[in-house]
Design a protein around this nucleic acid. Structure first.
Lengths: 159, 159
DNA sequence: TGTGTTTCCTTTGATGTCCAACTAATTCTT
DNA sequence: AAGAATTAGTTGGACATCAAAGGAAACACA
């Protein structure tokens, strides 16, 4: 099987691990991974806008709304509409929310973080760089296509 | 901010890209990423068991059940209980299902695959290896902990 | 001022995803 | 052979996630 498929399998393992970590957080700590990330964002910048959070953690605004609904229902965060521009919504932490973020665990598995820190500096960088590269290769949706065809070898035509 | 967080951000980008690809597939082709992967698995081994599929693509059996429900409802796959061991369920593709898998697109973005193939052999390998390493670092949940304490530096005790 | 566009957020509807609990069937013990 | 433990799969409930559609408000510009 091709390297491409191996990559996909490894990717699925990682995605699953992240998801399981989220479930684990939810169970032992009461907040899922995304909820935690959202709250950390709010903490860093009280009054942050929905859109901003979405961009920061790479989720759609719809998803953030969804998450905020739950946080608000549990009195961990609150939304306040701007008076100057009533389209905008500033998000804040409640006292309970602040307390929760204080003693929050890490979004990634503790033991992953431990191991990651045990790696040599250059290995860490290399790992980050590879992941970023994959991300970039995946989400640049529009660029490329025609411009590249004249340059490179048209290596194989499939089927 | 730490490398660890950079990694998390890149990871979220990748996860999102995979998810968006899935939505895109669903829209243009009628099957989501996971559905497609499940069907490819069935194609390769007709009569495959639910558990096997789950292991192959790194999802829980519950999720596979869920996906199979939909596939069966759309007459793309069917389940047949084993007669010798009635706990077991063999999964097969219907004629429609076979046809669908035939002209199915790739689970990953076409342009990602293209770019990936443009990389040099060693770069591809390196990319796969890194991803596998991350996966391994994340999902070895049980190992470590106590066995390591006597050897290494007890770096920090938390709270 | 009025109409059209853009921006920001929310709602709706569909998947995916898991765990925990459950049923059914098989195998192991004594 | 009866009861216990294990295995296979499903169900129920909760979140995450998105696109598309739907307001509401602000802006733009004639």
């Amino acid at each position: 099987m091709g390297k491409e498929e191996e990559l996909l399998v490894a990717l699925r393992r990682v995605i699953r691990a992240v998801d399981l970590r989220s479930k684990q957080l939810s169970k032992h700590f009461g907040l899922t991974g995304p909820q935690l990330l959202v709250m950390q964002n709010i903490q860093e910048k009280p009054g942050i806008m929905v859109r901003e959070i979405a961009d920061n953690i790479n989720l759609s605004p719809a998803t953030i709304t969804n998450i905020l609904d739950r946080l608000e229902a549990r009195d961990l965060a609150k939304r306040i509409r701007s008076t100057t521009d009533k389209r905008k919504v500033g998000v804040f932490l409640t006292e309970r929310g602040k307390a929760a973020v204080q003693d929050s665990p890490r979004p990634l598995q503790e033991h992953f973080v431990d191991r990651f820190h045990q790696l040599k500096e250059w290995e860490q960088s290399q790992m980050v760089a590879t992941m970023q590269r994959i991300a970039t290769m995946m989400d640049a949706e529009d660029i490329d296509a025609s411009p590249f065809l004249e340059l490179g070898s048209i290596s194989e035509k499939n089927s």
